[in-house]
Design a protein around this nucleic acid. Structure first.
Lengths: 206, 206
DNA sequence: CCATTACGCTACGACTCGTAGCGAAAGCTC
DNA sequence: GAGCTTTCGCTACGAGTCGTAGCGTAATGG
């Protein structure tokens, strides 16, 4: 690093081009899917030269990660009054994103690629996963303030529990949507929140 | 259908070729991953002609599904005495399969492709998912006989609950392994089984 | 012996990849 | 404004893969 100023010299990169490329990527994901998506096609759709695209992204994986990551910008966790309501709300939001075809075909594909590419996995973690995990921590802390969950004593244990909850929630919604191919509707979400709160053995309030 | 006999006329297909091709597919998945896996390479590794491969599989997706499906043959559910032990056992088995690189890179990739290909999704469901789901039903019925879980009244409700459990268990393990990239070890499995049985709010026995 | 099917091999056009080279455009600093 | 720097669009390229067609041969059953 020889300087921290964002744009330094010469012609600046067109921000419009980046926007158009990412939008074109999502459009192509919807129309042709991951495996048949070609960077040449994306460039044409975006109205830029193929070389411009390669100057900014090293390949298909990185491009799709960035294109899909923008879909998760809308995730947030308004206070709905109770832990159960908060869970149901965020799950429905997450499911709504996964319902979009550009997310379905793109997200799983880059996750699959990331099993052989540590840099790609880190990029996914930063731009997609971490944003989701923050909601878990936030919702958990809120529930503790409400007295719905016991407060943490050991901070390491707290982090492990947050990771566990995150994997369970995100994993269940993704699996339901992409593998089982069944809808994440209000009824399922209610059952899921009940299971998460009271368990299989517990007696959930109706 | 003009006959039901399995082999009818002419030279029969070599069963050795099928075995070699599927093994070569897994080998290639380990070495080059999904995206750089080419059918020509697989054919060379298997010692068969590329045309032979195309005569049996319509493309990369179908081939990888069959190659990965064989990994799940080993899944079973021995009676470990309690529901918690059964859950921990099957989760560890499932995690052991997902720990193999040919499963990691192959499974998620075909799931991603299946979001745009209903026939492929059905093939995955038949040869991979259904086998896993049977274990859930089996473990659940065992736990009910033990008195660990309440018996079902409505059969439709029972099926929905089994689907829910399946999505939660499989989803959590897959997410932990592939997205979070953290190990599914004994400690995690114990925490997960506790959460599944007693919930966030419940007081799990140590 | 003959019909039928699978096999190995070669060759093919079509497509995509990622890069190089070029001149023009768009900024900044002086 | 002059001059420097970087990005842009465009064209062209060799390399690699795709999926198929065509051919002669091998392995079955009637």
């Amino acid at each position: 690093m020889h300087s921290r100023s964002p744009a330094r010299l010469g012609r600046p990169r067109s921000t419009a081009a980046a926007t158009a490329i990412l939008a074109a990527t999502r459009e192509a994901l919807v129309e042709v899917g991951w495996s048949k998506l070609t960077l040449g096609d994306v460039a044409t759709r975006a109205g830029v030269a193929k070389t411009t695209l390669y100057r900014r992204w090293s390949g298909k994986n990185e491009l799709v990660v960035d294109a899909v990551a923008e879909l998760f910008d809308e995730l947030e966790l308004p206070d709905r009054g109770s832990l159960a309501a908060d869970i149901e709300g965020v799950v429905l939001q997450f499911a709504a994103i996964l319902d979009r075809p550009e997310a379905r075909s793109g997200l799983m594909a880059v996750v699959a690629e990331s099993t052989r590419d540590d840099a790609l996995r880190e990029r996914i973690r930063e731009s997609i996963v971490e944003r989701q995990k923050r909601l878990v921590v936030q919702g958990r802390s809120r529930a503790q303030k409400r007295g719905e969950l016991p407060a943490e004593t050991d901070p390491g244990e707290a982090a492990r529990t947050a990771d566990l909850i995150f994997d369970v929630v995100a994993g269940a919604v993704v699996h339901r949507t992409l593998v089982s191919a069944e809808p994440v509707d209000a009824e399922w979400v209610r059952s899921f929140a009940g299971l998460l709160l009271y368990g299989l053995a517990g007696d959930a309030p109706v």
